[in-house]
């Protein structure tokens, strides 16, 4: 039985179809990759799976159980651990506090006994601290144990966030661009780490990732999303040479070269929306891309759409000035961006 099974997932924001009939399957002990260009709907898919969005149609099954409607915190308690594209942690708290916060669902005492201060509470608190320390040790982050998370470097944050996801005691881990903000060496290291973690904690993973070497190395299976639809799926080696995938990454260049910037989660969602907006007047009945694909030359239609998406960038700017300003700030705040790292 698969750990996670997503079938016919569709979600629509207003008039924009962000995801259309997406099917995914993650089996026990697998690391599955989810790739696709900016705005393809990867993060949206994550949000649907983890319960932040309610899909319009389709279902999410966890170990055979339908959990489509379960809210995020319930899913987290079930065993869905996730990270965010733009580091999801409590920035004003220390590393150890974050790791303890992440163990919320497994704290093992209720609010009232916490307020009263029963002996059980203090015992459990000690255990939470111990586990948090163990994770810090595992990730080699003891040096920032009592430092506020806010001031740390981006790479450290991504690592610590992974730690937080582990602290939730996950069964399946959903990682949203775990290597963003890391240099190539760090990324390689992370690859090793993911494999180790899988072994040590018997984890199953679904990973959004752009760093192709990492995907090739760790993933057992890869899904490619484009414009909210599944474009392809298969073994990483097959996907790498899949012509339609190459085409989707704009004109046939290598995928990793196209991911020059780190997009934030909001950007990703917005990109999805605006690009969808740019093309939603296209034929809505266009056939869904085949899943098992023959190598085929990039179609004219796709090129046009991609080009239009690019030219519409200006209009998109005007549509979301506020968001863009925010993301600019965030990028500036993060000390490292991928820009230099990928070169």
């Amino acid at each position: 039985m698969s750990v996670l099974e997503v079938s016919d997932l569709s979600i629509r924001f207003g008039g924009l179809q962000a995801l259309q009939d997406v099917n995914l399957e993650v089996n026990e002990y697998e690391i599955v990759g989810l790739i696709g260009p900016n705005g393809a709907g990867k993060t949206t898919a994550f949000n649907c799976i983890t319960g932040f969005y309610q899909p319009n149609t389709g279902s999410v099954r966890y170990r055979g159980q339908d959990v489509t409607k379960a809210p995020p915190h319930v899913k987290a308690a079930m065993g869905f651990g996730r990270t965010f594209q733009n580091v999801g942690m409590v920035k004003s708290a220390t590393a150890i506090e974050n790791l303890k916060t992440a163990q919320h669902a497994k704290a093992g005492y209720d609010v009232l006994s916490g307020l009263v201060g029963t002996s059980l509470t203090s015992k459990r608190e000690r255990e939470l601290t111990a586990k948090a320390d163990a994770i810090l040790d595992l990730l080699g982050l003891q040096s920032i144990r009592d430092k506020k998370v806010g001031g740390q470097s981006y790479g450290t944050l991504k690592l610590l966030e992974l730690g937080c996801a582990l602290a939730t005691d996950p069964d399946i881990l959903l990682l949203d661009e775990p290597t963003s903000g890391m240099g190539p060496e760090e990324s390689d290291e992370l690859g090793d780490r993911l494999l180790t973690l899988r072994k040590e904690f018997a984890l199953t993973m679904l990973v959004i990732e752009h760093h192709v070497p990492l995907v090739l190395r760790v993933c057992d299976h890869v899904y490619v999303l484009n414009f909210g639809r599944l474009l392809a799926e298969g073994k990483p080696s097959v996907i790498q040479t899949h012509p339609e995938v190459v085409a989707a990454y704009l004109g046939g260049e290598a995928p990793e070269a196209l991911e020059a910037t780190t997009e934030t989660a909001e950007d990703a969602e917005l990109d999805a929306l605006t690009e969808q907006a740019a093309r939603h007047h296209d034929d809505p009945d266009a056939p869904a891309p085949e899943v098992d694909h023959e190598p085929a030359p990039p179609t004219r239609r796709r090129r046009t759409a991609a080009a239009r998406a690019a030219t519409d960038e200006g209009e998109a700017e005007r549509l979301r000035p506020k968001k863009r300003a925010t993301s600019t700030r965030k990028k500036a705040a993060a000390p490292e961006t991928t820009e230099g790292d990928d070169q």
Binding site: F52, F84, S92, K106
Partner: peptide
């Protein structure tokens, strides 16, 4: 206790808080 940590988390970012269960 966990209550305080939960409140701080939801104050800063409700999504992160939810992802933490």
């Amino acid at each position: 206790t966990k209550t305080g940590r939960a409140l701080l988390a939801l104050k800063e970012n409700e999504r992160v808080a939810e992802a933490f269960g």
